[in-house]
């Protein structure tokens, strides 16, 4: 089970995240816990693999919103970067960036153990 302490170490702004959840720690932790299995990560990877930047942008944008709301800062910042690049269709190493994001996601998932 993920703890607030572990999340803080991970770099999440748990104060803000809890506030958005009206101080409901159980809810916050349950939502955070469900993040690693969020289907949008796979959608993003697949879209990048397929070179579909439109779909990639939609997935990144959606993820960014969720991660921002939960104040999962490391994931949020990475997603923001990807989203902004995709928004302007900038040429970038998206595969590399997404791989970094996936690593962060897995790190979050590892907090559950």
């Amino acid at each position: 089970m993920i703890t607030l302490e572990a999340l803080q170490k991970f770099g999440a702004d748990t104060g803000k995240g809890l506030a958005v959840c009206m101080g409901n720690e159980a809810l916050y932790l349950r939502l955070v816990d469900s993040v690693p299995s969020e289907k949008k990560f796979d959608d993003l990877s697949n879209a990048i693999e397929a070179g579909n930047l439109d779909a990639a942008f939609e997935a990144a944008h959606a993820l960014k919103g969720v991660l921002g709301n939960l104040s999962l800062t490391p994931l949020f910042e990475k997603t923001s970067e990807i989203t902004e690049l995709l928004r302007s269709r900038t040429n970038a190493d998206y595969k590399g960036l997404v791989a970094e994001l996936i690593r962060e996601r897995d790190a979050l998932a590892a907090l559950r153990d």
Partner: peptide
Amino acid sequence: DERINREILGNI
């Protein structure tokens, strides 16, 4: 469309 956002808003 995002489940997590729905839950957060629902809670608020």
